[in-house]
Simulated scan of single mutants.
Amino acid sequence: PAQGHMNPMVQFAKRLVSKGQRVTIVTTFSSSKSVPTLNPTSFGSNLKMEFISDGSEQVKDSETIEESIERFRISTTKSLTNLMTKIRNSSDASQYPLKFVVYHSGMPWVLDVARRQGIDGAPFFTTSCAVATIFHHVHEGTLQLPLEGPRAIMPSMPPLELNDLPTFLSDVESYPAFLKLAMNQYSNLNQVNCIFYSSFDKLEKEVLKWMESQDWPVKMIGPTIPSVFLDKRLEDDKDYGLSLFKPNVETCMKWLDSKKPGSVVYASFGSLADLSIEQTAELAWGLENSSFNFLWVVRETEKDKLPENFVEEISGKGLVVSWCPQLQVLAHKAVGCFLTHCGWN
């Protein structure tokens, strides 16, 4: 799982529980080492977590990305089927029958798993509606790649330059396996009765109107952020409750407290971005040579790409951490700028 894809699904689960539903969040054993148990909340036993096999524990040799994706599909189909059978045969199944599966849009095969169990399911797109629509046009062939002209013209959107498009599309040779994965999201989309999006109508009004004109069964359920930052309807919902990495909470907040309002650039490129040594160095010296303080998230696995002695040289002006409580950081008065890879969540 990727952090930005987990967050909205966890928040959706919390909202469903607040409406009286029992929800089980399912992820893989391979992520269990980095994914803690859900933080204590007011949801009690109605919000549970289960882990299933993705087959990675049996992998001995290196895999290509294509092999990894196919192994994931085959293994999760089997293990998810077993989990659903277990839930349906549980002692409280009569009180809480299994009724519906919400699955990440990148796992379209889960719809077949659900329907073989006699229930329905729906994909959850954790990207913006705009990005999902762009991929749809590529899938349908209404947007040809590589672009035939300098701009991409699509309904409900302004003309887009090549660099405006997702990397998978602006450079189709860069990540072919991920492009295929993105396209597979639409393999059975015409068979679903509902499509969830982590967005809201006032943010993407034109795109939503186009989707509805195509008879897409769209349900906008965003913004999918903790209640304390939104409507404050859910007691104790102050963070997502799941994190792939341990955030340096006290270090980050204490450092920010020492800075003037609007004086800090917060830089973070998510849980997956893999920058080159050259790119990391450019970012490092760009931040150092700016006239602002900066808080930079560099994952533990990426720290060896930093310039030599960089952390020591920026003492006072900058702080480099392996992970941070992003919502709290963005809400802090000292932060005036967010430098990001443009992840939606």
Rank of each mutant, 00 (worst) to 15 (best):
R73Q: 12
E161V: 09
D61C: 07
S53Q: 08
G316I: 09
V298K: 02
V59I: 14
P40E: 13
I134H: 04
Y175I: 13
L339C: 05
E66N: 10
P176D: 06
W323T: 05
H332F: 00
D237V: 11
N309R: 15
D304S: 10
L283M: 14
F294D: 08
D237G: 09
V26N: 02
V249P: 02
P217M: 09
R116Y: 01
V172C: 06
P166K: 04
D257K: 15
V265A: 07
P325I: 08
F125T: 03
L169Q: 02
P247V: 04
K19N: 10
C252A: 15
E206S: 13
G343C: 02
Q144S: 15
E302D: 14
D92Y: 03
V329P: 01
R116E: 03
T81E: 11
P158G: 11
F125Y: 13
I65V: 09
A13D: 05
Q326E: 06
A334L: 02
T37I: 14
L234I: 15
L181H: 12
P223L: 13
K86I: 07
E308M: 11
K303Y: 01
G20C: 05
T85S: 13
Q328Y: 03
C252S: 15
Q214I: 02
T64W: 03
V172F: 00
F292R: 14
N39L: 14
K303S: 00
V335A: 01
Y197L: 13
K238A: 10
T251W: 00
D120S: 13
T224Y: 06
L234M: 14
A267P: 01
P247C: 08
F12I: 15
I87V: 09
Q3M: 13
M84A: 06
A284N: 11
E173V: 08
K202Q: 12
L16Y: 03
F43A: 08
N7F: 12
Q191W: 01
K60W: 06
V17S: 03
S91K: 14
M211W: 15
E312M: 09
Y175G: 02
F245E: 09
Y103S: 00
R116L: 04
L230N: 08
I69S: 01
F294R: 08
V249L: 06
K219E: 15
S90M: 02
K303E: 08
L181W: 12
T85Y: 14
A331D: 05
A132N: 07
S18W: 03
K19M: 09
L179P: 03
I69E: 00
L330Y: 05
A331H: 08
K99M: 14
I65C: 00
V265M: 11
R73V: 14
M253F: 04
V138A: 04
W285G: 07
D236L: 13
P146D: 07
F135S: 05
Q191N: 10
S199W: 05
K303C: 00
D120Q: 13
S62L: 12
S268L: 10
M220E: 11
L47Y: 03
S34G: 12
F178Y: 11
E302T: 07
E66A: 11
T167N: 12
V23G: 03
V207M: 08
V264F: 01
I65K: 09
T127Q: 15
S243H: 12
E312K: 13
